[in-house]
Amino acid sequence: MTNRDLSVSSSSTPPAAAVPARPEQFDEQTRAALDHIDRQAVRVVADGRPERTRTGYAQDWASWTTFCAESGVPLLAVTPGTLTAYVEWLWTQPGWKTGSLMAPSTIDRRISGTVVSAREEHGVKPEKGVARLARNRLAQLVKEMEKSGEKRGRGQAAPLLVDHLVTISAACPENLRGIRDRALVLMHFAVAGREHELAANRVRDYADAPGGIQADLRVSKVRPRVVPVPYGSRPSICPVRAWTAWKEAAELTDPDGPAWRRLHSRWHTLMGGGLSAEGIGDVITRAGARAGIDVRFTGHSPRRGLATSSRLKGHDQIVIAKQGGWAPHSKVLASYLEVVDQWEDNALLGVL
Score class of each variant (00 low, 15 high):
Arg266Leu: 11
Gly350Met: 04
Met271Glu: 11
Arg241Pro: 08
Glu150Ala: 02
Val351Asp: 04
Gly153Asp: 04
Arg290Cys: 12
Asp345Val: 11
Ala200Glu: 04
Pro230Arg: 08
Ser9Cys: 12
Arg22Asp: 11
Ser100Cys: 15
Pro224Asp: 05
Gln156Asn: 12
His164Arg: 07
Asp205His: 12
Ala85Arg: 11
Gly99Leu: 07
Glu144Arg: 15
Leu348Ile: 02
His164Glu: 06
Arg177Tyr: 06
Ala200Met: 08
Leu348Thr: 00
Lys97Pro: 14
Val191Thr: 05
Arg119His: 08
Val332Ile: 15
His268Val: 14
Ser71Thr: 12
Asp181Met: 15
Thr114Leu: 08
Trp89Arg: 08
Val227Lys: 00
Ala32Ile: 10
Pro74Leu: 09
Leu217Asp: 06
Asn136His: 12
Gly232Arg: 04
Ala85Gly: 09
Glu150Leu: 01
Thr84Ser: 12
Thr114Tyr: 07
His315Lys: 13
Gly113Glu: 04
Glu51Lys: 10
Arg262Met: 05
Pro50Cys: 01
Ala17Met: 09
Ile293Ser: 12
Arg311Ala: 01
Ala190Gly: 07
Pro235Met: 13
Pro224Val: 08
Arg154Lys: 12
Ile37Cys: 09
His315Gly: 11
Arg135Glu: 06
Thr92Arg: 15
Glu28Tyr: 06
Val142Ala: 01
Gly48Ile: 06
Gly279Glu: 01
Arg202Gly: 13
Lys97Gly: 13
Met145Ile: 00
Ser335Met: 09
Gly155Thr: 07
Ala62Ser: 15
Val203Glu: 06
Leu160Lys: 02
Ala245Asn: 05
Asp256Met: 01
Val219Leu: 10
Ala245Ile: 02
Ser276Gln: 00
His122Leu: 12
Arg152Phe: 14
Ala327Gly: 11
Arg180Glu: 00
Val78Asn: 05
Lys147Phe: 04
Glu28Cys: 05
Arg132Phe: 12
Thr298Gln: 04
Ala215Asn: 04
Gly81Leu: 11
Ala245Phe: 03
Asp256Gly: 05
Val8Ala: 14
Pro239Val: 00
Asp181Gly: 13
Gln317Pro: 02
Glu121Gly: 14
Asp341Asn: 06
Arg132Cys: 10
Glu195Phe: 08
Leu217Pro: 08
Ala41His: 11
Pro258Asn: 07
Gly56Gln: 15
His164Asp: 13
Phe189Ile: 10
Ala46Val: 13
Gly232Thr: 01
Ala46Thr: 10
Lys147Tyr: 04
Gly81Arg: 10
His329Lys: 15
Gln214Arg: 15
Val227His: 02
